[in-house]
Design a binder for these strands. Structure first.
Lengths: 213, 213
DNA sequence: TAGATTGTTAATCGATTAACAATC
DNA sequence: TAGATTGTTAATCGATTAACAATC
């Protein structure tokens, strides 16, 4: 495991570990107790307790033998790791079904995400409300990004216009694109793209159902 | 790699391979050419051509040296693997923002998913339209599941009612739950749960932005 | 034929698991 | 103290990569 020398005492995590740490974060947000054991985490997430302990050992964090992990402290650690303790202003591009669903979703505040604007280029949508946000034209994009120091955009346009919208976002200073369009985006180096292809989950289900027939 | 003896000549795939095969499927659905090389697939998905060839070699499929893979044939193979060639009737439970977005999404037909009904227990929503579907009360659940031989349900209710809804779905004969609620569901053995936690993607982005600062 | 690309085997790398020591 | 749980090291397992053979 390679170490990432950094001003903080940050370590690099194996990728699977990082994925599981997200699951631990989601799980702990649901817990109301003060302590939790590796065994309990493991049971709920259907993995082994050894793996849980190993994963947590990558964090700058120790548990109490005979008691388990102190949930608030572990949450602090995970929050810091994923930057949940810093709030990012996020914009949504595309006010269709998915875009409005994301703009309305209440669960983001808890993980340090604040949706500050939603955009569309459909005249009929511009000016209408999505929760307490007014749908803005794309001509406002650059101004809003600057004004709210927006680094992240959720891209929720049809796949035909995804690349064009991505280019515009990059030109306007966006650093990361959370891409809900089923399209492969080409972006300059240094720009982060996270593909959120909703069809992947259902493909797993179909594959499993098919296989176990 | 262990072999899965089956009436068909199906093989077991390494889990990471299976995930990448989904990406290949999504990519090929966008291509309009007749052939594609491992090199081109690799470039677009930012992996190595060796890995692409290795992954494809797990399929019952060969490419043409000097030419590449015949896209329609490879698509057939991937469609069969993921059961895309068989259409499944799917119901959506919860007619909030996410539920209606999923019910309206046009991209599912292409992967063998047909949304046949949407349910909610909010009196104000029952009877209203979501695209061409009428929102039905949960009391209709069992009847619809039987009638349309529904095996898969997309669970889009708030996390507080997720477990209750899941219990009802299981009781009504559902075989797989595509869970969009940020909750850990407890289901009997044999019932498949696929968690589609939308917050995971954004956590990756936050983590990367934080780390590269 | 030469060259480009696929296919496969062996070597390497990295992640998981097992065993057990440390600790409260 | 005994027992339960965490933490860590070493062994195992599995996936990726490298090298090269096969093929058109």
């Amino acid at each position: 495991m390679s170490e990432c020398s950094n001003n903080k005492k940050t370590l690099m995590f194996p990728k699977p570990t990082l994925e599981r740490l997200k699951l631990y974060l989601a799980l702990l947000l649901q817990e109301e107790k003060e302590y939790i054991s590796s065994d309990e985490i493991a049971k709920k997430l259907k993995i082994t307790p050894e793996q849980v302990r190993k994963d947590i050992s990558y964090l700058n964090f120790v548990g109490k033998p005979k008691v388990g992990y102190h949930i608030p402290s572990l949450l602090n650690e995970l929050n810091e790791l994923f930057g949940v303790d810093v709030t990012d202003n996020v914009i949504v591009v595309g006010a269709g079904g998915l875009g409005t669903a994301i703009a309305k979703y209440k669960g983001f505040k808890r993980i340090g995400i604040d949706i500050v604007a939603i955009f569309d280029n459909d005249e009929d949508k511009i000016g209408t409300f999505v929760s307490e946000l007014v749908v803005l034209p794309l001509s406002e994009l650059q101004r809003v990004i600057k004004r709210f120091k927006v680094k992240i955009a959720a891209l929720c346009v049809p796949k035909e216009s995804a690349q064009e919208a991505a280019d515009l976002l990059v030109k306007s200073g966006i650093k990361a694109i959370w891409n809900f369009a089923p399209a492969i985006l080409h972006v300059p180096p240094g720009i982060l793209v996270e593909n959120e292809d909703i069809t992947r989950g259902i493909l797993s289900i179909k594959h499993m159902l098919e296989k176990n027939k």
